[in-house]
């Protein structure tokens, strides 16, 4: 277990972005883990410290940590702090995949409602993949 870094930074969160603030924190931390910037055993800031850094309420960070803990991505040790779990990397990838699957399902449903046939759907997916063939956002 490594100590919490001095200037802990995750992707930006904002009330203007999609989703509740706590959900944004959950997503950003998952991305840090999935992209390997937060290895297993890495320490996260205390939720009060993190609330101060992010300028959000303590409850917001607490809720994000609780959700990550429930998903087995991080774990808490009384008196020591919060750390990325051994299986955190795999788990955040799994949850990302599950979320992607749901979004695709929803997208396909909308497309079907718009009258697209399976062949056209595959074509649409291909188009979007080409669109998205740009470097990932960080």
């Amino acid at each position: 277990m490594t100590p919490a870094p001095k200037n802990f930074l995750i992707g930006p969160i904002s009330p203007a972005a999609d989703g509740a603030l706590y959900q944004q924190i959950v997503d950003r931390i998952k991305r840090e883990i999935a992209e390997g910037r937060l290895p297993a055993g890495a320490a996260l800031p205390s939720f009060r410290q993190f609330a101060e850094d992010l300028l959000v309420s303590v409850i917001t960070v607490k809720r994000a940590y609780e959700e990550l803990e429930r998903d087995g991505i991080i774990f808490r040790r009384q008196g020591l702090g919060t750390f990325v779990a051994e299986r955190g990397h795999a788990r955040s990838r799994e949850t990302k995949l599950a979320a992607a699957r749901n979004l695709l399902r929803e997208g396909f449903r909308e497309a079907a409602e718009a009258g697209l046939k399976p062949g056209e759907l595959a074509e649409l997916a291909g188009e979007i993949l080409k669109e998205k063939n740009e470097p990932p956002r960080h």
Partner: peptide, 15 residues
């Protein structure tokens, strides 16, 4: 406003 809320969050940091 951000400065003020930043200080308030710091003030409650000890729980």
């Amino acid at each position: 406003k951000q400065q003020v809320f930043g200080e308030l969050l710091k003030a409650v940091e000890d729980g």
